[in-house]
């Protein structure tokens, strides 16, 4: 494909994405139905190209090439230490904090390189939210936790903040449980609620992408079920990349699955295909539980 052409298509998409935020949720659903399934969404929303990554002298990712579709859930699976988290944390450049990192290749979101010198990391992170393995609410009230991203962006209007809190908590399926105690400490919540609070926090400033690094690994089955339902809802509006250790979870929540092994992308495709009909022996061995 001609890269020039490619770029212009993406710009068009980008504008659509901005205006999209202004229309209400219902309209989006209607729109989605009208367009028939998700076929209209950009299947190459996130492009990872020839990507190598090094911690100091150790290379942990080897020549990764994959395209992640817009508004779908992509699961990254693979045995511990294979580089899933590293890849995920590079999508919002969280790894920049670590000394001595280095990369080759490129990552493009909606056609723009995340390493573009003109792009500020802060604005990238506003577009790419993140939910961590260990829920990390701030030592503040529930309300302040949710609007943290708006506050640091300078948001001050009370009506706007109130609205964002309600919207985010509703989307995170937490509103009914906490609407009467928004000003209590976030630490008064249960583990599952805290993780949903972190999700609400991640979506409060309307990012385009949500990265989730084993978001359920510390939760009980009921809380896990709730988060999975939530992921299902969220993909209407957000592109989701999720790292998981749990094969059933990947099968349940994701549209596409990527299997990593020792820093290499072994197989990537429709979730159904990866689980039912893997092409690679290692993939088959892993998804059928024979190693990992």
């Amino acid at each position: 494909m001609n890269p020039e052409q490619n770029h212009s298509t993406n710009t068009g998409n980008r504008q659509a994405a901005t205006s999209r935020q202004e229309v209400s949720q219902q309209q989006i659903q209607v729109e989605a139905k009208d367009l028939g399934e998700r076929a209209s969404y950009d299947p190459h929303y996130i492009r990872i190209r020839n990507y190598d990554f090094f911690y100091g002298a150790t290379q942990v990712l080897f020549d990764i090439n994959m395209d992640l579709p817009e508004r779908q859930v992509t699961a990254l699976i693979g045995p511990s230490g294979c580089g899933k988290s590293t890849l995920l944390r590079n999508l919002n450049r969280m790894n920049d904090l670590i000394d001595g990192i280095r990369h080759n290749g490129d990552v493009l979101i909606d056609g723009e390189s995340i390493y573009h010198p003109q792009l500020e990391v802060i604005s990238l992170r506003k577009r790419v939210g993140m939910v961590f393995q260990k829920s990390n609410p701030f030592p503040k009230s529930i309300y302040e936790n949710v609007i943290y991203s708006l506050r640091v962006a300078g948001g001050r209007r009370k009506s706007q903040l109130d609205e964002a809190v309600e919207r985010s908590l509703k989307r995170a399926a937490l509103w009914d449980e906490v609407k009467d105690r928004l000003h209590e400490s976030a630490f008064s919540l249960s583990g599952g609620q805290m993780q949903r609070l972190c999700i609400a926090r991640a979506i409060a400033n309307d990012p385009e992408i949500i990265l989730m690094d084993e978001p359920c690994s510390a939760l009980d089955p009921i809380a896990t079920g709730k988060i999975e339902d939530l992921i299902h809802e969220l993909k209407e509006n957000y592109t989701i990349v999720i790292v998981t250790h749990n094969m059933q979870q990947a099968a349940r929540v994701s549209d596409r699955t990527a299997f990593f092994y020792l820093g290499k992308l072994i197989e990537y495709g429709e979730t159904q295909q990866i689980f039912m009909n893997p092409k690679n022996n290692q993939t088959e061995a892993y998804v059928s539980g024979r190693f990992g």
Partner: peptide
Amino acid sequence: VSRGVREGSLACGAS
């Protein structure tokens, strides 16, 4: 101060 809290804040777009 835990790394989790710092990363959580940075991930929200805080400087």
